[in-house]
Design a protein around this nucleic acid. Structure first.
Length: 891
RNA sequence: GCCCGGAUGGCGGAACGGUAGACGCUGAGGACUUAAAAUCCUCUGAUCGUAAGAUCGUGCGGGUUCGAAUCCCGCUCCGGGCACCA
């Protein structure tokens, strides 16, 4: 039984055209040099077990519309997709089930891909990338080794964020309000040896590069704030304890207002400065602070605690005695960990001085004698020879005086820290690093043609443990990819030990042949070149057993020469999830290239994405990290542009119908595939685009899908009769002038709106156009087909189907994009609005050739305006050409 | 605390300083139908009015302008970011 409703059989139509696109490779990017290129990029998803959500669809539909539109316009379009597939959920699943995370990851990827295809996204699947694929992460490791070689990847032992619940360290960017970004678990400070990437070396470039980018201003500001450049001075204070103190300040002009110095409790000079009388108090204060969590310490509401060291500093210009305190509001990781306390002109110093009864000396005057603390710039007072100078000039002069004395200099500080780059996790890229003893390292560096020199940095990366120094030896290109070994347990160990510690000892402990580059398990001689198969390895995870070329030199002439071998231990940390996403977009250009991370010819053609669409939540994580990597690759000469993403757009969040963020616990989650099953993929796409402006956060409303669903059914009925034949309604000889005008307005409006990513108003214009079609007794097939072309990027399946039913042979996307003909929209009559004192009173229709004087004359006698004109005399007449007349009437 | 962004009918939202509420949803009434669904037509910001129409109306208070949802100043509320960064 077929009801009339089923005439528009979206299920069959959508499946049919998805198969057609697949078969004809419609969305394959061809690198056709005869065409201009357009690369539209989505932030690739983490393939979670939950599948696609409506937010994914929103962004991907937007890029799909752009991609299809640009393709119709004649561009060679690249719209690729991939998987950011390393990460915690797959690992936790592995811990729970014992099944290798790759299995779970692949299942999720398969599901995601199927869902994307179900929505009809025009993606070039031949370029799919997956960060967990050794063929991909081989190059992530290779880029890491470039950082290493250039001295930008090193280890340091310093306080880092440790999350006990996750069993790993986290980057600053991953810690929000003292909790982990993923999972919201508490974090604490721990001194650990970790890998860092020296992003601070790029702070200035990252800041300046923002200027030319077409990014949302808010996102640029967020990055600016995160980089946090501040110019200031370093000022050294002599003390009575034979131990100088250097402070950082952005306000050297307030130097005469210094009434105390405050040191962070971790400051290295605290012990030296504590007098015998105060030592006990200082020690117990330090202990008290050490026991506090970072959250407690950074609580702004708390009273500013501190303790006097007993020692005084000498003011560099006045010679005054200044007490030195220890205070936990001073942060060790900013500036020098020491501040000059100027309570009159700094809120925090003021609070501290009030709490501890320290003097407050005003040295800056504002314009209006503002109360203290006064933190703005102003005019100096009580500052010796500098009095009555403005702040900026005084700062410069004071610093130059101090500089002459050798106790001051200008400097730039950044808030951004080096990027903590190692994690104690299994499901991440292994570091292509082996740790060897210092003496062995020196033998290696002395070996002139050692393959291990390929990525060797000028300065060794090393750490000390129990009196022994270990140095990092980089693997060579030949050793990549260093694949993840099998482990007996995916769980991290106690005290920041990584899951890779659980790998087979034959993987962990190795011997390197410094002459040939060969790597073998430590406990094997030449005979046993083959890596032993791990006894408990899963069959389907064999791909993850190391495939290093252990057999290169076994047969070589040199054979096994004891002098060429050094022993080492592999690095067992893995890279953070952000690593792969730092450069994945480049891999789309040549996903199968075995020589380079990205092929030079492909790069030359595609350059960088023309549009990047993804969530604003990545403003300081992914978007900063990938800019850093790209800048670095640019400096190395691998890419020709310094910035990866010229134009960026953030889609807004789709909220639940209750106005809250969609979440399982609130039960307001909408599964987009359910919607596609009930209303069709075209309706789902149209609905998400019609919700509101793409950048706005907006609530979901299932009820409103009826609207776009009706729109599609109306279109169907316009073209197709109940019997399934082409409707006579679209068989008109020629179109009315009104319809031609409407159609051209629609071409114009839809084109503009797509270019500006204003899809909601584009769709409403299509609706207006369709409503106009319905009112015509007949319209031409040409007009109807133009409408289909405009509809195609939004609702591609129905557009293709009706296009074919109109007698066309090839895909609608190959039919080009309609051009508006403004001559069709010229009207012979104008509607002029008549206002009196700015209020609408009447309107008149005049022929386009009527003069301004004529129009004003007609307007003065417009029947509904006359009573209001009669209330006084016309003081002024304003005429906006072709639009309105406004009479200013006074009593 | 600081820095952004936002606030328009019953709802989602339109509106180069120039007819506020396009388009869609909802609701009411009508047509078709034995009936329902679907579809089509009319109305749907508030108040007064039988109507014509009038008055009010874009978070609040001022201002600029012939004319303000739009620009400026001062608030309120909501959302986001940063947060002892010296």
């Amino acid at each position: 039984m077929h009801s009339r409703h089923s005439d528009y059989d979206f299920k069959a139509i959508e499946a049919c055209w998805q198969a057609y696109w697949e078969e004809h490779q419609t969305f394959r990017a061809t690198e056709d040099v005869a065409k201009p290129k357009y690369w539209v990029l989505d932030m690739f998803p983490y393939p979670s077990a939950a599948g696609l959500h409506v937010g994914h669809i929103e962004g991907y539909t937007a890029t799909d519309i752009i991609g299809r539109y640009k393709k119709a316009c004649g561009f060679d379009v690249l719209h690729p997709m991939g998987w950011d597939a390393f990460g915690l959920p797959a690992e936790q699943n592995a811990i729970a089930t014992g099944i290798h995370p790759s299995v779970n990851t692949q299942n999720n990827i398969d599901a995601f891909k199927k869902q994307m295809q179900r929505v009809g996204l025009g993606i070039d699947w031949s370029r799919e990338v997956n960060t967990t694929d050794p063929k991909f992460y081989r190059w992530t490791q290779w880029i890491f080794l470039q950082f290493f070689k250039h001295g930008l990847a090193c280890v340091s032992e310093q306080p880092v964020w440790w999350c006990p619940k996750l069993g790993t360290v986290l980057a600053n960017e991953e810690v929000i309000d003292g909790k982990s970004e993923r999972g919201h678990y508490p974090v604490e400070r721990r001194a650990l040896r970790q890998w860092v990437l020296k992003i601070t070396k790029y702070a200035d470039k990252l800041l300046k590069g923002l200027d030319g980018l077409q990014w949302p201003e808010a996102t640029k500001r967020q990055q600016q704030a995160w980089i946090g450049r501040s110019e200031g001075g370093l000022i050294t204070f002599k003390t009575s304890a034979n131990c100088d103190l250097t402070v950082f300040t952005t306000r050297p002009d307030t130097l005469f207002g210094v009434t105390f110095i405050a040191l962070a409790p971790e400051h290295s000079s605290v012990d030296k400065l504590a007098t015998d009388a105060q030592r006990g108090a200082v020690e117990s204060y330090k202990r008290e602070i050490a026991s506090k969590s970072d959250l407690e310490r950074t609580d702004l509401a708390k009273i500013k605690s501190g303790v006097f060291t007993g020692t005084y500093a000498v003011h560099p210009l006045t010679g005054a005695k200044i007490p030195i305190w220890v205070a936990d509001y001073v942060l060790m990781h900013h500036g020098t960990g020491a501040v000059m306390g100027v309570p009159a002109h700094d809120t925090r110093d003021f609070e501290f001085a009030q709490t501890h009864s320290l003097p407050v000396v005003r040295v800056i005057k504002g314009a209006n004698n503002e109360p203290l603390p006064f933190c703005n710039k102003g005019t100096l007072t009580a500052s010796g020879e500098f009095s009555s100078l403005p702040s900026d000039e005084a700062s410069r002069k004071i610093l130059s005086v101090l500089k002459a004395k050798g106790i001051g200099k200008t400097t730039v500080q950044y808030k951004i820290h080096d990027w903590l780059f190692s994690r104690q996790r299994y499901w991440g890229e292994p570091f292509p690093i082996v740790w060897v003893k210092k003496a062995d390292y020196e033998r290696l560096t002395a070996c002139e043609n050692s393959p291990f020199l390929e990525f060797l940095p000028e300065e060794s990366v090393s750490y000390e443990e129990k009196g022994e120094i270990f140095c990092a030896v980089p693997l060579t290109s030949e050793h990549l990819p260093l694949t993840l070994p099998q482990v007996s347990s995916y769980k991290p160990g106690e005290g920041a030990t990584a899951p890779l510690q659980n790998a087979d000892p034959s993987w962990l402990h190795v011997r390197l042949n410094i002459r040939t580059g060969e790597i073998r398990p430590k406990n094997e001689g030449c005979e046993g070149c083959q890596m032993p198969a791990s006894g408990n390895a899963e069959k389907n995870a064999n791909a993850y057993i190391s495939k290093e070329k252990t057999d290169i030199s076994c047969t070589s002439e040199g054979g096994f020469d004891k002098g060429d071998w050094i022993e080492g231990t592999r690095e067992t940390n893995t890279m953070p999830q952000w690593a792969g996403s730092c450069w994945y977009y480049l891999r789309y250009l040549s996903p199968n290239d075995n020589e380079k991370p990205v092929n030079a010819d492909a790069l030359k053609y595609w350059q960088t994405p023309d549009l990047y669409v993804g969530g604003a939540e990545h403003a300081v994580l992914h978007l900063l990290y990938s800019r850093f990597w790209h800048l670095f690759l640019h400096d190395c000469g691998f890419v020709s542009t310094p910035e990866p993403f010229q134009k960026l757009f953030h889609p807004g969040i789709i909220l639940g119908s209750d106005g809250n963020k969609m979440s399982k616990s609130l039960g307001n989650v909408v599964n987009p595939l359910d919607v596609a099953d009930e209303y069709g993929a075209d309706a789902l796409r149209l609905y998400e685009m019609f919700l509101g402006p793409l950048e706005a956060s907006k609530p979901w409303s299932t009820k409103n899908i009826e609207g776009v669903s009706r729109f599609l059914k109306k279109i169907w009925r316009l073209f197709v009769t109940v019997e399934g034949t082409l409707s006579e309604h679209i068989g008109g000889e020629r179109d009315s002038a009104a319809l031609e005008c409407l159609l051209n307005e629609t071409v114009q409006k839809v084109t503009e709106d797509i270019e500006n990513l204003r899809f909601n108003t584009a769709i409403s214009q299509l609706m207006i156009c369709l409503n106009g079609f319905q009112k015509e007794p007949y319209l031409s097939k040409t007009a109807a087909k133009t409408f289909l072309q405009l509809l195609a990027p939004f609702a591609p399946h129905i557009a293709e189907e009706l296009w074919e039913r109109c007698g066309e042979q090839s895909s609608i996307i190959d039919a080009g994009w309609p051009k508006p003909d403004p001559s069709k929209c010229i009207r012979d009559e104008l509607k002029i609005i008549i206002q009196v004192n700015g209020k609408l009173r009447d309107e008149i229709c005049v022929s386009t050739d009527v003069s301004k004087e004529e129009i004003l004359k007609i307007a003065r006698s417009a029947p509904r305006a006359v009573p209001f004109l009669a209330k006084g005399t016309i003081a002024k007449e304003i005429y906006v050409s072709g639009k309105l007349v406004n009479f200013v009437v006074k009593d």
